[in-house]
Each structure stands twice: as structure tokens, then as C-alpha cells.
Design a protein around this nucleic acid. Structure first.
Lengths: 144, 144
DNA sequence: CTTGAATCTGTAGTTACTACAGGATGCATA
DNA sequence: TATGCATCCTGTAGTAACTACAGATTCAAG
């Protein structure tokens, strides 16, 4: 390990604005993640500005990537908890992932059903200038 | 007692609880729709309880049906505005529907992409007891 | 030392509900 | 008539995951 751990070569370099630029995550969101307990409170400058390092950046990337994949903050918190603990197992992580995958597939199924109905309703409607619209009819009469 | 109260074949009969039972829409939500300008303020009993009739029920069914199809309250407000005006055209209604259908298809595409990535990540992971999890790796390294 | 950009905290808005609290009403029965 | 209790009322606040200010402070360059 490095004997020159003067706490500066690896120390905070990034301002919140810099971190935002590097990750594409906006500033307010970064602060929000801190309040939400996903990002640790970073050290501050004398004046109170947040100062981040590469570890913070890695963590934020993890969070954003997970969000892009549709994980909820609760799930991400749980995943990070596992990783932070260090003693996590693949099985635990995989369980969360599969549960989420299931939810995603459920949503896809829901939306697909919606799309079919919308499509059918739209197909019935000639889009003319007449006020007797089959779409409106369908919305008033769910039973069909 | 005189159960045959006159002058109300079209008069208010339903309490909010009754309307809730008939439509499956819960009471707080009905009041919320009123505040949100989707349901009109109904007449009240002497004591101030809301009293609904068949028209209200039709309208609420329309709203719920539209919600089930994923229309936002704003869109529903717009649709109801058209219908209320009476001079709406099929074309207007169809435009809203098609716009929404487009959005739904967009969401399906997004979710399908998500599911593919999640599936692939999960497939890489053997779910073992080892802490070196490919899923965690993937979340830390979006590039791949 | 003076700017102007960046950052700070704290609060409030967004969507579509849901969940109370604390009080008033409606109605059937004793 | 009294009473009990289900139902209803208003108003507020909480949910998820941000986003958008306001008003004050700090940083870095010149």
C-alpha cells in the first residue's frame, strides 16, 4: 500500500458540479441521494462545499445505472447495503434482480394489454368530424 | 314510511359510499377527483353529505376506465372537456388516444430493453455464495 | 478587492392517490 | 326521544423520485 497516504493524492477533488458533469446526474439529485441515504455525506471545504472523490463517483454511477434499469431507491439502498457490508453473496443480489425483472415483465404485460385496447379503439374511430365517437363510447362502456 | 319519494327518478340517490361500491373506486379517490376538477361538485344533503346520481356514476366509470388504460388525469380532463362541450369531433379524441398509444409503446420499448439487460445480468450470475457478483460488477461498470 | 459563477440550506412543487384525525350526520332501533 | 354507531365531512400530510426555486454564502480569477 502507499506509504504516502497524506490524504491528498486520493482526497476529494471533485466539486458537486464536477461530479454532476462527469456522471450526468444533476446537482439537486446528488444532494437528494445524500439526504436519502444512498450517497454518504462527503467531506466539505472550509466554506462548506461538498468535495467528492473517485469512490463517490463509482457509487453514484452504480446508483444511476441501477435507476436506468428501473430499480427503486429502496432496492438500490439494499444492494448498496450488501456491497457495503462486504459479506454479500451472489444469491442475495440475484434475488433482488430477479424480483425486479419479474416486476418489469409484469409492467410490460400490463402495458401491452393497454396498447392492444387503445389500438383497437383507435381503429374503430375514423377520426371524422362527427361527434359520435366510438372511443368515447368505449370509455363510457367498459363492459363491452 | 313513504318509501316512494317522488320527483326523483333522476334525483340524487347514491351516497359517496354507494357510488364507491358500485364503481370500485374508493371514497377518498372520488373526493380527490372532485377537487381535481374531474367530477363536478354534486348536490348535498341538508347535513352536507354528497348525493350522486346516474350521470355522476357514468362519468366516474369513464374516468376509471380511462385510468385503467393509462390516460393521465390531464388527458382525461381534456377528453371530458371535449365531451362536455358537446361539439367535439372524433378527430380530437382520436388524436389524444393515438398520442397516448405512442407513449405506451415507448414505455414498452424502454421496459423491454431493461428486461433484456436484467435478464442477461442475472444469467451471468450463478447465484452462489461468493461475493464476487457479476451483477454488481455490471452495475458499477455501465460501459459493458 | 471585486466580480460572477458555483454552491449552500431549506422549502415547495410534481402525479395520483391514500391515510389519518377530529368532528358532524344519518338512520335504525329501544 | 334518546342512543348508538356506521357513514360522512374537512383538512392535512404522506408516498416516489426527483426538480425548482429563493436568498444567502463561498470560490476562483483578475
Amino acid at each position: 500500500m502507499s506509504n504516502m497516504t497524506k490524504a491528498n493524492e486520493l482526497s476529494p477533488r471533485l466539486t458537486i458540479g464536477g461530479l454532476s458533469l462527469r456522471t450526468g446526474c444533476n446537482i439537486e439529485t446528488i444532494r437528494y441521494y445524500e439526504r436519502a441515504g444512498l450517497m454518504p455525506a462527503p467531506p466539505r471545504s472550509r466554506g462548506g462545499h461538498r468535495l467528492y472523490d473517485a469512490e463517490h463517483e463509482k457509487r453514484l454511477v452504480f446508483i444511476r445505472r441501477s435507476r436506468q434499469l428501473g430499480f427503486a431507491l429502496d432496492q438500490i439502498r439494499a444492494l448498496l447495503g450488501l456491497v457495503d457490508g462486504g459479506d454479500y453473496t451472489c444469491a442475495e443480489v440475484k434475488a433482488t434482480t430477479l424480483a425486479h425483472l419479474d416486476a418489469v415483465r409484469g409492467k410490460i404485460a400490463d402495458l401491452t394489454r393497454m396498447a392492444a385496447v387503445l389500438d383497437e379503439m383507435a381503429a374503430r374511430c375514423d377520426g371524422g368530424e362527427v361527434p359520435a365517437c366510438p372511443i368515447v363510447e368505449a370509455l363510457f362502456n367498459p363492459g363491452r
